[in-house]
Design a protein around this nucleic acid. Structure first.
Lengths: 238, 238
DNA sequence: GTACTACTTTTGGTTGACCAGATTTTTGCT
DNA sequence: AGCAAAAATCTGGTCAACCAAAAGTAGTAC
């Protein structure tokens, strides 16, 4: 951790952008700005905060990405939230946006993928099935090559896509690459033949539209990573 | 929908930023760039693509937000991914980033919150319990005021926080505000006394560390919104 | 008194020049 | 030739000036 003597500095270095976001947060907490208000022009904020317009601009961009404000061209930015507490929480989240701990990432992945495959089994179309089979074949083909990890990812991605819930898919897309990176870095993950069999079982369950069965296999499939994450967590705590 | 006569333009207007991202995607797909490569300097990309550096800059920012590239000051940006197919998929997702349909949002919320409250019940600390009780009291207090929605949100937020899984919380923070906005807009949601009772039951189950019970109540609690979303979906399909 | 038009101001968007740190190349000594 | 110091170059980050569209305002015709 980036502990300092004072114990005050939580973050290594706060980027100018984040500082600006903090200022906006203060403005809201102090009651100057309320949800629904139009916030001052970029130039005004810049001089008021003592930062360049570029920094203010980037901060507003970031806030818009996270749905906290809505900025319309040549008009201004309005605050989106529902109430002050909510807003405060949201902005804090944006500021504390750091790389998540591995165990939480995996835990979330298990939940998301288990439910995604259940929906996939219930909702797949002919087109989906073609993609699924293609992805499965690719994985078999690449199993003994360097492309294995990528093809594995692609298979899971296809399952998420066939769930016909874009939110599930988007969230998995956020979580999985992070996991894969750590997994790949920390463990020279050897090709495990069980994985092939599990993928096959998932395909069978999906084909039979047996969502519950598919979900069970997925849980088992991901148990390895979950255990790995748990042991890693316990190791780090010592 | 924003249909045109040609039927070619899927999006209303593709922002310059997204166009740049598309170009980067093409560069990767054509094999010019591979994962791990350092991509050309901002200025070079700008002249090569025929856009301003500002636009290139924003595109790279966006790609960094989504973990596709990593840019280090005074040095350059490197591509993060694992393999080409994965990268292609990720970038496509960023480009198609649109407002999600209401039903998918709610469906995801149910899954996330059900699991979040289960973990909350298993893991809460004394400090968490204090916050939970405070949030619950606030909701009771604000039930007949305009702040009801905000306090409701705050309660659910506290539960997510007490799950001690920051990823769950972050994802709920993305999903819930969108839901609340639509819910609030489409339906003058009248104060429903059942909600108070359900919140109380959740609190009881959490206190008893009964994760399964808490999850059940949460599912029931959210069923109303899920049904509402379903009817809204079916109405729109007609 | 009211509605409409033309003008001024304000807004976010864009551009090109400049800055300091990192990187590479050149240079000069041994 | 080997190697270290220094200079030139290349990088992302910052800044101030400018652009066109939106919003606001004053004036005028009715």
């Amino acid at each position: 951790m980036a502990e300092t003597f004072t114990g005050l500095k939580e973050q290594n270095v706060e980027s100018p952008t984040d500082k600006v976001i903090s200022k906006v947060k203060d403005l809201i907490n102090s009651g100057v700005l309320k949800p629904g208000d139009k916030l001052p022009a970029e130039r005004k904020l810049a001089v008021e905060f003592g930062f360049g317009r570029t920094q203010v601009r980037e901060a507003l961009h970031k806030l818009e990405f996270y749905g906290i404000i809505k900025t319309l061209p040549q008009s201004g930015s309005i605050i989106n939230g529902l109430d002050i507490n909510t807003l405060d929480g949201l902005i804090s989240d944006v500021l504390n946006l750091q790389s998540y701990d591995f165990y939480s990432l995996v835990e979330t992945r298990v939940v998301l993928e288990t439910n995604a495959i259940r929906l996939c089994a219930e909702r797949w179309t002919e087109k989906d099935m073609q993609k699924l089979e293609k992805a499965h074949e690719n994985y078999l083909r690449d199993f003994n090559t360097a492309k294995r990890i990528g093809s594995d990812f692609a298979f899971h991605r296809t399952v998420a896509e066939s769930s016909h819930n874009p939110v599930f898919k988007a969230m998995l897309m956020i979580v999985i690459p992070d996991i894969m990176e750590i997994y790949q870095r920390d463990r020279l993950c050897a090709p495990n033949p069980d994985v092939i069999d599990e993928h096959q079982q998932m395909m069978n369950a999906i084909k039979k539209r047996d969502g519950e069965k598919a979900a069970q296999i997925m849980t088992k499939h991901l148990k390895g990573i979950l255990d790995f994450a748990k042991s890693k967590l316990e190791k780090e705590e010592n």
